[in-house]
Computed example of a mutant assay.
Amino acid sequence: MLHVIRTQLMSRPFLWLLFICNLLGTIYGFYWYRNQMEATEWYWNFFVPDSPTSSGLFTLLILLWLLKKSSPLLEMLSMVTNIKYGIWACGVIFTYGAADGAIEAQNWMLVLSHGAMAVEVLLYNFAYKFDWRWLWVGAVWLLFNDFVDYVYGIHPYLQDGRFLADVTFWTPVLSVATLLLVAMLRPKARTNWHV
């Protein structure tokens, strides 16, 4: 049964569907961040759109698979960023929703899309070729981004400032937890799967 699921996940029609969905989500994500990017100094703009950059990395990875190529670096970066920012967005939305007593419809869309970001990269763990030794690059990426976000105020806009201190504390904790999770999932090289 597991083999059937994995074969379906790596089938070209399914990968094309996943590629299109992630590409459209990535484009919309950059559009979502347009105002914050316009209000941010150009040299910090790379650090502003965390989620669309993450989904964009996975979109590129899917394209590589469709071209029968691979990149351990891209696999690792797409995995750690999508897990971290997928969980981060859901956590922030639920925090505000619990405090406010409700979650708006638009935020439920964000919960679904960001939750899917984390789930989809975990589903493809079997197909990745990178091992845990690549994670030092991911650690630099995530933790430097956290530093820039909360020292220079480049983090995604929050609903308001009520939970800024909490988010500032828990975001690097989530980065470390993500790295530890991925390290546990990548104990050795995986079986190579081909499209």
Score class of each variant (00 low, 15 high):
M1Q: 08
L2W: 12
R6I: 11
T7C: 10
L9V: 10
F14D: 09
L15F: 11
L15W: 08
L15A: 07
L17Q: 05
F19P: 00
I20C: 15
N22T: 15
L23E: 05
L24Y: 12
L24D: 07
T26E: 03
Y31A: 07
Y33Q: 01
Y33N: 01
Y33M: 03
Q36G: 10
E38C: 06
E41M: 11
Y43S: 13
Y43H: 13
W44E: 02
N45M: 12
F46Q: 07
F46K: 06
F47I: 08
D50P: 03
D50T: 13
D50E: 10
D50S: 12
S51H: 06
S51W: 02
P52Y: 01
P52W: 00
P52C: 03
T53E: 01
S55H: 02
S55C: 05
G56A: 12
T59M: 06
L61C: 04
L61W: 03
L63W: 06
L64W: 02
W65A: 03
L66Q: 06
K69V: 06
P72Q: 09
L73R: 07
L77G: 00
S78D: 05
S78W: 03
M79S: 09
M79N: 06
T81Q: 01
T81R: 00
N82D: 02
I83H: 00
G86N: 01
C90F: 07
G91Q: 04
I93G: 07
I93K: 09
F94W: 15
A99L: 13
D100H: 14
G101F: 15
G101I: 13
A102Y: 14
E104Q: 10
W108A: 06
L110D: 05
V111I: 15
V111M: 12
S113K: 06
G115L: 06
A116I: 10
A116W: 09
A116N: 05
A118M: 05
A118T: 04
V119A: 15
E120W: 10
E120Y: 11
V121M: 03
V121E: 00
L122C: 14
Y124L: 11
Y124N: 02
F126T: 09
A127L: 11
K129S: 15
F130M: 13
V140S: 11
N145K: 07
D146G: 03
D146R: 00
F147Q: 03
F147D: 03
Y150T: 01
P156Y: 07
Q159I: 15
F163I: 12
L164N: 04
D166C: 02
T168W: 08
W170Q: 02
T178R: 00
T178E: 01
L179S: 10
L181W: 11
V182R: 00
R186D: 00
P187E: 08
R190H: 14
T191A: 13
W193C: 12
